[in-house]
Simulated assay, not measured.
Amino acid sequence: MESTLVKAKKDKIIVIMGATGTGKSRLSIDLATRFFPSEIINSDKIQLYRGLDITTNKIPLQDRLGVHHHLLGEFDSDQIGELTPCQYRLHASNIIEDILGRNKLPLIVGGSNSLIHALVSDRFDPNSDVFNDVDSMLSSELRYDCCFLWVDVGLEVLYEYLLKRVDEMFDSGMFEELTEFFKSETESGPIQQIGIKKAIGIPDGGGGGGDMMDTHIKDLAIKAIKYNTCQLAKRQIEKIQRLRSAGWDLRRLIATEAFRAVLLSDSDMSSEIWEKNVVEPSVKIVKTFLEE
């Protein structure tokens, strides 16, 4: 007699992960606009919140090329405080169901591995800190059929690129954005480090609400943000390595040479290497995954 216990087929999703600044958004747009009808779900915990678009490095609207982005700048941290991993799991899973229901491919994109873990783990325990507690076990049991694309850049090259990117962000108006933010926030009292405010690596909350345009404060801000950004990248890579050690099938895409070309100001060579080393293998991996 044929068994009535048939294992349900899991929904397929793509997860694009990697340290900050490694090109996750660029790859997601490449895949969504050129190969697979997709919608993107943000998994960067700071980019969940409204405001500070330059500081949090949200992908500009014109660069999204019409691709629908979910959970990007959607929440007001002054109203809701900080979105918990459980809340993220609920919001993102509902969006995945909706995207799949419209015959599109969900792309989960972002550097917050704790949110990715909360979303895809079959039995997520919000009371267990799997990345910081050595006694907590990371499970390889997933509730989705996941294709993990890990965009990786050698640490030395990545650090150099991140320092360059912070300078470019300041040139693009990041300092003015922070000045206006601190001006409005300090009027209502001390700045609480929750939600969007965790994005800021400035000592003493911007000099205790002083003159943000002071040269000394500006230099402190640039140094602090550069240091914090590099430390963030290092922590993110450590978490990714832990997920890999736990049995997660992460497909590593090495983008180091493409970023090295960027640092040499050779944009044509960078695009060519990016296409060869990142986009083309990603397309092959995803096509094989979808056909399985």
Rank of each mutant, 00 (worst) to 15 (best):
L250S: 01
E187K: 15
F175R: 10
I191P: 05
G195P: 08
D211N: 15
I217N: 08
R235E: 10
S188A: 11
R244A: 08
A246L: 05
A233Y: 05
I194T: 15
Q193W: 09
I217D: 00
R244V: 00
S245A: 15
G201P: 09
G208N: 12
G207W: 02
I237P: 00
A199F: 04
G189T: 12
K197T: 13
Y227K: 11
R244L: 01
W248N: 02
A224R: 09
I237E: 05
I202Q: 00
G210V: 07
A199G: 15
I200D: 01
F182R: 08
I237H: 02
N228P: 00
M174C: 13
I191R: 11
K197F: 14
I237M: 08
T215L: 14
G209A: 10
D204H: 09
M212N: 03
K223S: 06
Q236T: 13
L232M: 12
F175E: 12
G201T: 05
G206P: 06
S188Q: 15
K223F: 03
K183C: 08
P190D: 14
K218W: 06
S245G: 07
S184M: 13
I194E: 11
G189F: 12
M213T: 15
G189A: 11
T215R: 12
P190F: 12
G206S: 10
G205C: 07
E180S: 14
S188G: 02
E176H: 09
M174D: 07
D214G: 08
Q192Y: 11
K183W: 10
N228M: 07
R242M: 12
M174G: 04
F182H: 15
I222Q: 09
N228T: 08
N228R: 11
R242C: 02
E185I: 04
C230F: 01
S245M: 09
I200G: 02
E176D: 15
T229D: 00
L178W: 04
C230V: 10
I237A: 02
R251E: 06
I222R: 13
K198I: 05
I200H: 03
I237C: 03
K223Y: 02
I200L: 13
A246V: 05
I202E: 00
I225C: 04
R242S: 11
I202W: 09
L250W: 01
Q241V: 06
G201H: 10
D211S: 11
R242N: 08
G205N: 10
A221K: 00
Q193F: 10
I222T: 08
F175P: 01
K226I: 02
E238W: 03
S245K: 14
K198G: 05
C230S: 11
Y227I: 07
L250N: 02
Q241L: 13
S245N: 11
P190L: 14
A199K: 04
P190H: 10
R244S: 09
F182C: 12
L178K: 07
R251C: 07
K226R: 13
I202T: 06
K198R: 15
G210N: 09
T179E: 15
G189V: 10
L243D: 02
Q236C: 05
I217G: 01
K234D: 10
F175L: 15
K226G: 04
F175G: 13
K197S: 14
Y227S: 10
I217L: 15
K234R: 14
I196E: 06
I191Q: 09
I196W: 03
K234E: 13
E180Q: 14
E185V: 08
D214E: 13
L243E: 01
